[in-house]
């Protein structure tokens, strides 16, 4: 707890891949316990922004802090010292990340997938983590698959396992990168249900998605991005129903 400080604080972030200027000065604050949904056309930089929050992408300019701590750097006087990989890995282990393509470890069973990081990255006791993992798998509804390999699961089940895997780290924050975009339409609902349940339980999260209905239901803040900038942000009613920008309006009318 940090008394009023935002959980995520992104300031003046720029990022280029070669000649492609993907993020062009992004500022963003996510309050503790709140849910932020980021919308925007593909190529607008929303995934890059999300990935820079846990330093999967290193930003070119600007700063990202999570829970009051600078990500990837340490400030000493007037200088920023890069953290070692070990320190960065430690920071990441406090931030959950759910990928579009699940990225479950194919050679490990569902339970081993969930148990791996809390044991190896956080040094927790395997037995404790295993019982927590079973509870989490129960919570996301795939407990009966605990000893199967991921390939035997449907996409929806795999993504729910991936969410349990992120939760097992007991993160301060969970980032979702288009969690339902790789799923067959009839499987989207089961994954969204899990994320909605998490949102209502007070987990701080940032979700990049195309699911407008989901944004309306759970978001505290909706952010619309285009061409590497935040075009507008506000409550779902504001951004989805009365967008002030023409670009937002045309995007929403296209995806609805």
């Amino acid at each position: 707890m940090n008394g009023g400080l935002p959980m995520v604080d992104v300031r003046g972030v720029h990022k280029s891949f070669g000649d492609l200027h993907v993020l062009r000065g992004v500022d963003l604050q996510v309050e503790q316990g709140s849910v932020m949904v980021i919308l925007g056309p593909s190529g607008s930089g929303k995934s890059t922004l999300l990935r820079s929050i846990n330093h999967l992408e290193k930003v070119d300019a600007g700063a990202v802090s999570v829970d009051g701590r600078l990500i990837g750097y340490r400030r000493r006087g007037n200088r920023l010292h890069e953290l070692t990989e070990r320190e960065i890995l430690h920071q990441r282990s406090e931030i959950g990340f759910v990928f579009q393509n699940f990225n479950l470890f194919g050679h490990l069973t569902v339970l081993q997938n969930v148990v791996e990081a809390p044991v190896s990255a956080q040094g927790r006791k395997r037995r404790d983590v295993e019982s927590l993992a079973m509870e989490l798998l129960e919570r996301v509804g795939v407990a009966e698959k605990a000893h199967d390999y991921p390939r035997r699961l449907s996409g929806g089940q795999q993504q729910r396992v991936a969410i349990a895997r992120a939760l097992a780290l007991q993160p301060k924050l969970i980032l979702f990168d288009e969690p339902t975009s790789a799923l067959d339409p009839e499987l989207v609902g089961e994954v969204l249900d899990v994320i909605v349940e998490l949102a209502h339980s007070g987990t701080t999260m940032v979700v990049v998605t195309h699911e407008i209905g989901f944004a309306r239901e759970v978001a505290d803040t909706v952010v619309f991005m285009d061409e590497g900038r935040i075009i507008e942000s506000g409550s779902p009613e504001q951004v989805l129903d009365n967008p002030s920008s023409e670009r937002t309006r045309s995007f929403i009318s296209r995806v609805l």
Binding site: L89, S93, N103, E116
Partner: peptide
Amino acid sequence: GQLEAAAALGIPRRRQFFK
């Protein structure tokens, strides 16, 4: 994606490689 997931979970480097 496997390495990316391992990095995102904070699994130590050596363990990412061997496990």
